[in-house]
Design a protein around this nucleic acid. Structure first.
Length: 156
DNA sequence: GCCAACGTTGGC
DNA sequence: GCCAACGTTGGC
């Protein structure tokens, strides 16, 4: 079992959108970075833990817990000319962008980026590294555990 | 295959 | 809206 942090801009898809989604599940569409794609295509397994992270917003941070809920499959938005994520070089026979489905476990209190930075046990998190922009990043078991403790600390 | 230019990300 | 950091593109 592995753990991941996945970023989403809440203006586009927030934790509340996931709460309202059918089956509380969504394909993690729109990733257009090869390294992040490779994590989803090659490294995730059904049941892996996911930290749902809100980025590019007033208070960035972890907004909920989720899990990987499917095997990798093509991101449908790459085939849609009307989508901002359309990729003219992708074909159904040869899709370029793969994703997994993500299912809500629970919405949590907002564990802000600021609070994450204050925790010495989280100092090595990929998300906290200078210049990090990856939208899907691995989380270590000890980081996962530490975040679980922080989220248990008060009501979520 | 190098690398400058350009585009994007994302916190501030 | 700024801008540092980083990924991608494309000319050579």
């Amino acid at each position: 079992m592995s753990y991941w942090l996945m970023k989403s801009e809440p203006d586009e898809f927030s934790i509340d959108d996931l709460v309202r989604a059918p089956g509380k599940t969504t394909p993690w569409f729109g990733v257009r970075n090869y390294q992040a794609r490779n994590y989803m295509r090659d490294a995730t397994r059904v049941g892996d833990g996911v930290l749902f992270y809100h980025s590019s917003c007033e208070v960035p941070g972890i907004a909920g817990l989720a899990e990987v809920a499917s095997a990798p499959h093509p991101d449908e938005t790459q085939f849609d000319p009307k989508s901002p994520y359309f990729d003219p070089k992708a074909t159904r026979a040869n899709p370029r962008w793969m994703l997994v489905d993500v299912k809500l476990v629970r919405k949590t209190r907002l564990l802000s980026l600021d609070e994450l930075r204050q925790r010495p046990e989280l100092a090595d998190m990929v998300i906290l590294r200078r210049g990090n922009r990856l939208s899907v990043t691995p989380v270590t078991p000890s980081e996962w555990k530490a975040i679980g403790k922080l989220l248990a600390r008060d009501a979520g």
